[in-house]
Design a binder for these strands. Sequence first.
DNA 1: CCTTATGCCTGAATGC
DNA 2: TGCATTCAGGCATAAG
Length: 273
Amino acid sequence: MPELPEVETIRRTLEQHVQGVWIKDVQIYYSSVVKGWEGQEFADVVKGRQITSIERRGKYLLINLDQSWSILAHMRMTGRLIYYPAQYQVAKHTHVVFKLDSGELHFADTRKFGRLQLVPTEHKLEHPSLLKLGPEPLEAEFTPEVLGQSLSRKKVNIKAFLLDQTMVAGLGNIYVDEALFRAGILPERGTQTLTEVEVGKLYSSMRQVLWAGIEAQGTSFRDYRDANGEKGSFQVALQVYGRGQEPCQICGKILERKKLAGRTTVFCTNCQK
DNA sequence: CCTTATGCCTGAATGC
DNA sequence: TGCATTCAGGCATAAG
């Protein structure tokens, strides 16, 4: 499921191929993926425009077209944006095909949760979905003080806090569990029970695990692929996610699996306090 | 304002 | 073997 490192990898791999190219035509095979617009209206607006740049905010991608419109894209769990240098078959779960002046861009999504929507470029960051987002964890705006302030105002467990995109943008179930393990903090801990030292550890762990995820070009646990259709490699570095009932790689104790904040959560009751 | 629950979806894994 | 059930989970929206 594309989280910050995966979406950033898609952004980078996609930009290499499509920056500066023109969209000649758009074909829509499942119109619900387009949010707020009729499929044909979406296609008519996008057709004939040039892709100028691609940005990321949290788990969202912004594909900027000219200076007027941007496509705001979210992959949710199984969404893919894949570039093909030549014409390519419309596969089973392909919902939108952008015909470019060099190659094609396919939006595919098995689960059909992912969405594309058009936003005016001039007001792109004022879109309600983006306005709600908390700070970018890898940017300078995010400091241990900012994290500590947000934690002190909330009354939920740390797992729910880190999944909340309005607190910090970009972490999902995988990187939350990995960051908490690396910080040595139990996911059930209340936000207001963390000491200053623990907040510092959590801050560093979050940034470290997100950077490592980007360097590994993402986690391909199941469906994730970058814009070249390639897998990432961070799944081999996972210490807890997907390892419930396995021995902890640090201390050997069997990892616990529990539903928290509605998500499967894996942790070590020995290494995490 | 806050927190928790539900719907959206398909395919893999599991249960009987 | 085959069919039914459970699980995976980000976000918008509804409900409490």
